[in-house]
Deep mutational scan, measured.
Amino acid sequence: MDVFMKGLSKAKEGVVAAAEKTKQGVAEAAGKTKEGVLYVGSKTKEGVVHGVATVAEKTKEQVTNVGGAVVTGVTAVAQKTVEGAGSIAAATGFVKKDQLGKNEEGAPQEGILEDMPVDPDNEAYEMPSEEGYQDYEPEA
């Protein structure tokens, strides 16, 4: 019985440690998101679009440190934060509304985080759909 109880105690310690790591990862992701939003706020009209992409990228980098179902929630929060940063930029006159959601080359930025393969159960990952990809044929 002692062996059984000791095993359960060790398992509990492992769960607590994993929860603490997840909590730490979420806190880091939130900190990076805040950094990115402050970065966007300090940019001029020309830099705002690039700044919004930076927020998304920093958040995406930190999301990889967070495991399990938390990833889905962090990704949703990050996307809403990026959308909010863009709205703030438009409201303050840093950028025109028609410039939001495009990178410096004018290509749409939507789907940055949505296409990231995420499995809350950590069982399997699927690649994003290939609808947006084109076949590449090298020139002879």
Rank of each mutant, 00 (worst) to 15 (best):
D2K: 02
D2W: 02
V3M: 12
F4M: 07
F4I: 03
M5A: 01
K6G: 01
L8E: 00
S9I: 13
K10Y: 08
A11K: 00
E13Q: 14
E13C: 08
V15E: 00
V15C: 05
A17M: 15
A17L: 05
A17D: 05
A19M: 15
A19L: 15
K21N: 03
K23D: 00
K23M: 15
Q24T: 11
G25Y: 14
A27F: 13
E28V: 06
E28Y: 07
A29R: 07
A30G: 03
A30H: 00
G31M: 00
G31P: 01
K32C: 14
K34G: 03
E35N: 12
G36M: 11
V40Y: 15
V40I: 01
S42E: 11
S42L: 05
K43C: 11
G47V: 03
G47D: 04
G47M: 11
V48H: 01
V48Q: 01
V48T: 03
V49G: 05
H50I: 10
H50C: 10
H50E: 05
G51V: 11
V52D: 01
V52Y: 14
A53M: 14
T54C: 13
V55Q: 00
A56E: 01
K58W: 02
T59P: 01
T59R: 02
K60T: 06
K60I: 08
E61I: 08
T64Y: 07
N65W: 11
V66L: 08
V66N: 03
V66H: 07
G68C: 14
V70S: 01
V70G: 01
V71L: 09
V74H: 02
V74G: 04
T75V: 13
V77K: 05
Q79I: 10
K80N: 15
K80T: 06
T81G: 05
V82H: 07
E83K: 06
E83C: 01
G86C: 14
I88G: 02
A90V: 15
T92Q: 14
T92F: 10
G93Q: 06
G93R: 08
V95H: 12
K96L: 14
K97A: 11
K97D: 13
K97Y: 15
D98A: 13
D98I: 14
D98L: 11
L100K: 01
L100S: 08
N103D: 12
E105N: 13
E105T: 12
P108S: 08
P108H: 05
Q109K: 07
Q109A: 11
Q109D: 13
G111V: 03
L113H: 04
D115F: 05
M116L: 02
V118R: 04
D119T: 08
P120M: 12
E123V: 12
A124R: 12
Y125G: 09
Y125Q: 07
M127E: 13
P128C: 12
S129W: 11
E130H: 12
G132I: 10
Y133E: 07
Y133W: 06
Q134K: 15
Q134S: 12
Q134N: 04
Q134A: 10
D135P: 11
D135M: 09
Y136R: 13
Y136W: 10
E137Q: 07
P138T: 09
E139T: 03
A140H: 07
A140Y: 07
